[in-house]
Design a protein around this nucleic acid. Structure first.
Lengths: 259, 259
DNA sequence: CGTCTGGTTGATACGACTCAAATTTGGTGG
DNA sequence: CCACCAAATTTGAGTCGTATCAACCAGACG
């Protein structure tokens, strides 16, 4: 498995910016807030691609924060079927507050090699006390995460294969844009077709054929882990994409939504 | 549309118990905590069946708490397709913290006539200050809600029609059991087959045929808005149901999981 | 080189959808 | 209490989207 090309293009290649820009999509942060985020990112570890960050059944001890790379939440059925229920890109938190729970009901796996910060209960408490702005932004993040999860339920429940894939590509492109990892319709896209299949509830064979259709229609280019959206407008139409669930309409919003 | 028969069987018929028993699945509450819940339930309203509690695009002003009846979250696509992304039964909160967001990305609709408490920001702040137990229990509730949403994504993404319906029936039965609205395999079940279709991503025709299969296999009885699960063990097997995502394994847990 | 992972293609099967109509149920008003 | 109406359920016939199974190919890697 290759490393994700984190230094690709003009994208930032260290931790701070992604987190900060993600949270600043919600609200402006003070220099002290940023310092706190940097401080929090001090305690990190690397996880190899295709390894679990944490597995179903484990006791959760940390809030994880993705500093670099892509990860996914997934659940496995006794018959071997697997569903990726969500994806994480740099700047995403996994489960604020999880350590309230006794055990994980799903696993978090690394799509690429990962750099993840681990935030313990004590650090969270400290934040709560001293950096209410960050905490509020983290709640916003949680609400958006929940909204994304609902949109995914809608996606697999009601959209056709073509719409479903289109929708997923757009969502990821937009989320990457917020954290400065996408522009001009382009972004890194490390998912395999099998990953896409697991995320959309399709088979990899059908994903393959449907991607070909999207290419044939001049909607996208996708090769070597690089995605290019050729006509965002048209793709959004085809996917019935409504960005409202990403809740990017907040005070701190400093990036606009054009391609 | 008929009123849900809230006085059915030996079930409780006022607000307090459902909420309390839901939260007490997580942790024991003090008399003061319970008093606070009763207090909070003071400000309620009724919503007729098939009306929206709040609609997509609205600005959220309250956390809603279902005191009586069933509700659902749903999203609608431009082509008219509709997905019920979650269901609420008595004792459920809708979106702790929502008023952080500018507008709803989905609607909440009443399945039956509904009695809902409305909790404003001030009351939430007061709780945060004075009743940390409740607040923590509400976070637990939020985490469980998120877990349920993930399970639904898995459900529509990977399970067959038969498994999907079986899974949904079991989940609802178990959730009702926690709040004292189900026992001996029986519970109220006000969803129409069209509702079930929207919740599972199937058509109502296929739901109809699949329910017949479940009946033919001696798994369930379902008529006149009453569900009876005849063999929970076997049904759980068929649905590949793993209750871990409901996170009922906590200190306050005072009801056991047998049928 | 040989192996492995990821992508591609072809042929065939089936689960779920569509459309259309009939039937039952439950609520409403005379 | 019955007649009526709308909503919900049920049935049938035919179709289609996606799955399945089975190869094959290309590039990366050791």
């Amino acid at each position: 498995m290759t490393l994700p090309t984190v230094t690709e293009g003009a994208f930032s290649f260290f931790a701070g910016p992604a987190v900060a820009s993600k949270l600043e999509a919600f609200t402006k942060l003070s220099p002290e807030d940023r310092a706190a985020l940097t401080e929090i990112s001090r305690n990190f570890r690397y996880v190899d691609a295709r390894r679990d960050v944490i597995s179903e059944g484990d006791r959760p001890r940390f809030v994880h924060l993705i500093l670099e790379g892509w990860a996914c939440r997934y659940k496995t059925l006794p018959d071997g079927k697997r569903q990726i229920v969500s994806l994480f890109v740099p700047g995403d938190f996994c489960d604020v507050n999880v350590y309230i729970l006794k055990q994980m009901d799903h696993s978090i796996g690394a799509i690429t090699r990962l750099k993840v910060a681990m935030i313990g209960p004590d650090e969270m408490d400290a934040l709560t006390e001293k950096r209410p702005r960050i905490v509020q932004a983290m709640w916003w993040h949680e609400l958006v995460t929940a909204a994304i999860q609902r949109e995914w339920t809608l996606n697999v429940g009601q959209r056709s294969a073509y719409e479903r894939l289109a929708h997923l590509l757009i969502e990821l492109y937009m989320r990457l844009k917020v954290v400065g990892r996408a522009s001009d319709g382009r972004c890194d896209f490390p998912l395999t077709q099998t990953d896409l299949a697991d995320a959309t509830g399709l088979t990899s064979v059908h994903v393959n054929r449907t991607l070909q259709e999207l290419r044939r229609d001049g909607m996208i280019e996708l090769e070597r882990k690089q995605l290019r959206i050729l006509d965002l407008e048209r793709l959004m139409d085809a996917a019935m994409f409504n960005a409202n669930y990403l809740h990017l309409d907040h005070e701190g919003r400093h990036l606009d939504a054009n391609a």
